[in-house]
Design a protein around this nucleic acid. Sequence first.
DNA 1: GCAAAAGTGTTTCGTTTACACCCATGC
DNA 2: GCATGGGTGTAAACGAAACACTTTTGC
Lengths: 276, 276
Amino acid sequence: MEKGNYCYKYPHPAVTTDCVVFGFDGKRLNILLIERGGEPFKGCWAFPGGFMNIDETAEQGAMRELCEETGLKLEYLKQFGTFTAVNRDPRERVITIAFYAPARKSYVQGGDDAAKAQWFPIEDVPPLAFDHDYILRKATEQLKKDIHFEPIGFGLLDEQFTMPELQRLYESILGVHFDRRNFYKKMLQTGILEEADEAPEDALEERAPCYFGERNEMRSMSIDALFGGGQQDMPLPALSAAPTPEEPRRRKGTKFSFNKERYERLKEDKNFRLEF
Amino acid sequence: MEKGNYCYKYPHPAVTTDCVVFGFDGKRLNILLIERGGEPFKGCWAFPGGFMNIDETAEQGAMRELCEETGLKLEYLKQFGTFTAVNRDPRERVITIAFYAPARKSYVQGGDDAAKAQWFPIEDVPPLAFDHDYILRKATEQLKKDIHFEPIGFGLLDEQFTMPELQRLYESILGVHFDRRNFYKKMLQTGILEEADEAPEDALEERAPCYFGERNEMRSMSIDALFGGGQQDMPLPALSAAPTPEEPRRRKGTKFSFNKERYERLKEDKNFRLEF
DNA sequence: GCAAAAGTGTTTCGTTTACACCCATGC
DNA sequence: GCATGGGTGTAAACGAAACACTTTTGC
């Protein structure tokens, strides 16, 4: 019927993968597109992706194509849907398995490695090839859902990030504004962030990696001790004379990092939810 | 290379669909399986499903196969994943697009229409063909996630249902226990339930479909009016003499139904979430 | 009439929201 | 030194959780 060496009793659709790569430039959410060099939709922008090989999984295919077309090597892809409209590709019946992936900030700012790959702010995306506009909408919806419960956001920043950076990221994904203080608290309370004390030059005391559940616990304990948590054996120190051995305030620009091991443990433990 | 009339330049995987049909028998969550009549995995239990036709979408294929194999016609299928492990089918490279679907209680209790289709309580499922054990686990996880935010539960009961039925359903899906009173409140507060007044024989007053946001509002308004909401012009009625024109208590077994239109409206309106 | 299931409201607690001041940094 | 951005605590409002009694129904 059709020409070629691979023949089947019944018609088989072709299977492609597509990657919606999200990036964050510090201000806005971006996606990575490539300009199509061949027909159909020559010259149009589209997601990196391509035909899945017969001996690889969809994930493998998606990573391979992504790397071939953009040079990006990402560790995490999330499958979010398979698109099967009968006429979505004019050449033949093609279904596509779609993934989204977070790319670190440095990739986005590093610019376009591959000749034809380019980052676009998500509010300013050109018309896309095939049904990729639709796929993008679905990917974005899924990201919005997922970010509430999964730590995908951290994959969009560098290894270390400041709290305002993280907040701006969440705000651009969800399209809302958070109160700075409440955001800080909520993020720290999750217990999955670690303060990156990248300045071991002045302090010898090698502060152990400090999780904030514990940190807050410690703080409230010391307050209790000071103001009498039940037993008032110690004389109350005069308010002015009490230079409460305060935790020093964090410096502006303090960096945090996502503690994956701790997250995995928390996730197992109970009905823990990130909830943003 | 291989025989058949449909030939391609590159090898194409075969594409199947699979349906994880959930049912609720009043006590436990069930799934619908069919016994495989042919190789591979002859005699094993598996999900209804089969090869997607070249001129239908995956959804259409899934519905068709489901109907062919079990006689079930369901209106709602949810795609939750595509499974692409290279050796998941011994015959040839086959990827499967998987859906889950809620089936109404009457279908479950109606028993096995199709010769080889049978309901199994989800805690007591036999070993399944292919990677269907894995797919089942993923489907269940997805259902647990989705039920918090989508009204899928109602598709598992009959058109009309009692509150305890609904509660038992949520409890078996989520594997938790809810307080009866809190469950009642929360469900009513969503505003997507409607009281099914199926007894118009004694009351002539044709009670308008009563939503519970409104109902509660009415109640608290009448209380405010009685006890003076700011202005106390009316004399306070003696406590004993005040046969507060109470709302009659609902009868045991009162039926409710899911109001889809209202749900759609609420969903549009704001950042409304079911949240269970 | 007794046991089991179902309907209802109130109080308590924890979480979320709102909000103001001080410190650090860069111009 | 002034403006901007960033770090922190506390009080009010809201929503979730805990809880007991009464009514209905079926044996």
